[in-house]
Design a protein around this nucleic acid. Structure first.
Length: 327
RNA sequence: CCUGAGAUGGCAGAGCGGCUCAUGCAACGGUCUGUAAAACCGUAUAAGGUAGGUUCAACUCCUACUCUCAGGA
């Protein structure tokens, strides 16, 4: 059975650096599982921990994924390939479905070389969707429908959904029933199923997964995040954003709605002070980390390591050695 | 120094003479499968600058003081 290694956990726990260590020990290649690091030009704020001047090797300049063309290649960090960064321009959209397609392609490539694929990232949805693909993943978005539905309120959306697929609405939980995006998607799926009676079939590939979670004690996490944000400011996040804005990327794009970027909008429009902007960023970063923890805690297969204890690297290496050499 | 405005929970900010005091942010917890660093849900805590007065009753009305802000000298 194919072996796959996953390193996950909240932001600021040093996932990339340990993944690189493991890669060099076990002949691995990294696959980023990060919904924002796929964007070119969003480097500092998304925390692409790639040393400056690392070379990017182009594999396909115009790779077709779903409905658009993306840049496909890898960074070579001291001989270790890091995949799935810088796929998209900031004005392109990218979704889990896109991700799963390239991720599978990449795993295949790495396996052909008999290397170990190591997923690294904090986007819980991407990780769990890869391990356990949702059956509706191949139902494409209907942009016209979405545009139409975006003008409706919760009650109107609810009525439409009940009309086309009541059973779906019944099993949704309270929070989803109030979430316009979820309702819109549910309606979209409902219409699709009406038009296409045959359900999309998924070929589930069986893999031997090892999931590792990295975390800090809760009170330390806040410190880590504060430090990290301060570092990013020193590294020149303002310059980076100025550049993006100057090139013409607008604040309402999916990419610019990224944490660490969106907070700067009102600063750039002279509505907020620098200090307020930074405070807000830190707060949002912290909340994000907590949401990540909530998500990953739910994934029962994860084996957790506390990164405050320096010995943890040795423990992880030992554990992986056993797992990787088995059979 | 004068004039005016104001002083409400961790912060911002409404309303009201009467028991459990709007709202937003923050806090805490959670949801989730083609936007997920997104979007959404739940919960708890918590106040009336100080001293008097009026009243059955004051955070809400009156007086003084203190402080803050704006304008004037």
């Amino acid at each position: 059975m194919d072996k796959l290694l996953f390193i996950c956990g909240p932001t600021s726990t040093g996932k990339t650096s340990i993944a690189l260590k493991l890669a060099s020990k076990f002949n691995g290649e990294l696959i980023s599982a990060d919904s924002r690091q796929i964007y070119k030009g969003l480097d500092i704020g998304t925390g692409k921990d790639i040393p400056k001047n690392t070379k990017f090797f182009m594999v396909n300049q115009e790779l077709n994924i779903k409905d658009d063309k993306y840049t496909y290649g890898y960074y070579d960090v001291d001989g270790i390939p890091v995949w799935l960064l810088d796929l998209a321009r900031p004005d392109q959209n990218f979704t889990v479905a896109h991700y799963l397609e390239v991720a599978h392609k990449t795993v295949k490539k790495i396996k052909e070389k008999k290397h170990l694929p190591i997923f690294v990232g904090g986007t819980g949805l991407y990780v769990s969707s890869f391990i356990n693909p949702p059956e509706t993943i191949d139902i494409p978005p209907d942009m016209n429908l979405r545009k139409h539905l975006s003008k409706k309120n919760i009650k109107e959306l609810t009525d439409i959904l009940i009309d086309i697929d009541k059973s779906k609405w019944l099993i949704m939980n309270y929070s989803d029933k109030n979430n316009p995006r979820r309702l819109q998607r549910a309606i979209e799926i409902g219409y699709y199923k009406k038009r296409n009676m045959n359900k999309p079939v998924l070929s589930l590939l069986k893999t031997d997964n090892m999931l590792i979670g990295l975390k800090y004690a809760n009170n330390k996490l806040k410190d880590r995040i504060n430090k990290r944000v301060d570092e990013r400011i020193k590294q020149g996040i303002q310059k980076e954003i100025t550049k993006l804005v100057t090139v013409g990327y607008s604040w309402d794009m999916q990419s610019m709605q990224t944490l660490g970027y969106k907070e700067w909008q009102s600063y750039f429009n002279h509505k907020t002070s620098l200090n307020c902007t930074i405070d807000l960023w830190k707060k949002n970063e912290y909340k994000y980390a907590k949401r990540q923890i909530t998500w990953f805690t739910k994934m029962k297969d994860i084996i957790w390591f506390n990164t405050e204890n320096k010995e943890y690297v040795i423990d992880i290496v030992e554990m992986i050695r056993k797992w990787y050499t088995k059979k």
